[in-house]
């Protein structure tokens, strides 16, 4: 059974509709990659999943978010708060700013398990040191006494992951956890996340714009474009035969070994802003195979394309 389920969720901020009928689900032991370029609505989807839209003045205008079978909209704010950190852990985008600069590392992790698991100070610290050790941080007890500015980016991201794990959650939502890190550190963090899912049977919603990471790590992938789901399904078949031209274009952006110089492709144009979404299929202005139908009518289904598989261009 799926742990987190979004069914036809639409989100608006003010009068601007940003997400249009997004459906996703993540089950235990499963990694779902949510991909798309900047501005396609990935982070907004994460906020919606945690019930944190009011923070940025957004609201759900249609559909429902269910966690472990319970409708989030039907819960009180107190109930939602007790989910966050306890059952849903969040790993934010930029580890450089995700830690409070004036609080020691250990204290920031301790507080999560003290709040959610009711541990005493000593128990919480023991758990923190244990977690840090599991995340392959050397001399965890010493690091717990350090200040955030004394750690490197990769270390900080592990601390942020430790904070997300401290409440012993069932689901981790990671919003571009490797974007701000060096390539070598990225690989370590990805490995750590993958290992966590396998060892603890966690569900992981991994938000990224890196198709390489998705190919390595994710069981399923959901491709988001301009607030709509372009394509969703198991990773291997989608990478083998992408149905949506946008997915195909994203895969074309992955550098591969032995690629000729200059062969790396980009996608021409940019993601349209929410105030000026194109008519019909929102990808059509950038799509190499767009037809008259694409401009007129929004495609339904999965992949959401009038000409899936790219028939003949």
């Amino acid at each position: 059974m799926s742990l987190l389920q979004l069914a036809d969720v639409s989100v608006s901020i003010g009068q601007v509709a940003l997400l249009d009928r997004i459906s996703l689900s993540v089950g235990k032991g499963e990694i779902l990659g949510l991909v798309g370029e900047s501005g396609s609505g990935k982070s907004l989807t994460a906020l919606a999943a945690m019930g944190l839209l009011p923070l940025i003045g957004g609201r759900i205008t249609g559909g429902a978010v269910a966690f472990d079978g319970q409708d989030m909209a039907a819960m009180t704010e107190v109930q939602r708060r007790s989910l966050r950190g306890r059952r849903i852990g969040f790993v934010s985008q930029n580890p450089m700013t995700a830690l409070d600069p004036v609080t020691r590392i250990g204290a920031q992790i301790d507080v999560v398990s003290r709040l959610h698991l009711g541990l005493t100070r000593a128990q919480a610290r023991a758990r923190t040191v244990d977690l840090l050790t599991q995340l392959r941080i050397p001399e965890a007890a010493t690091v717990a006494e350090a200040w955030p500015h004394q750690l490197s980016g990769g270390m900080k991201q592990r601390i942020v992951i430790a904070m997300a794990l401290a409440g012993d959650p069932d689901l981790i939502i990671a919003d571009e956890p490797t974007t701000a890190l060096d390539v070598t550190v990225q690989a370590q963090i990805i490995q750590i996340l993958g290992a966590l899912v396998r060892e603890r049977g966690l569900a992981l919603l991994l938000i990224t714009h890196d198709m390489g990471v998705v190919a390595q790590l994710c069981d399923r992938v959901a491709v988001l474009y301009a607030g709509r789901l372009a394509e969703e399904g198991p990773t291997a078949p989608i990478f083998a035969a992408p149905g949506h031209p946008y997915t195909r274009a994203l895969i074309g952006c992955i550098p591969t070994e032995g690629m000729a110089k200059g062969a790396l492709q980009g996608i021409p144009g940019t993601v349209p802003g929410a105030l000026a979404f194109p008519s019909g299929c929102r990808f059509h202005p950038r799509c190499p195979q767009a037809q008259a139908l694409c401009r007129a009518e929004a495609p339904q289904g999965n992949p959401a394309c009038h000409f899936p598989g790219g028939a003949d261009v």
Partner: peptide, 28 residues
Amino acid sequence: ETFIEAARSLGAGNTHILTRHLLPNALA
């Protein structure tokens, strides 16, 4: 700041955010 968002996403309430994160950071 991201760490305020992070604290909130881990279940911190208003009082905690105000007294443990915002005021200490504003103190210096």
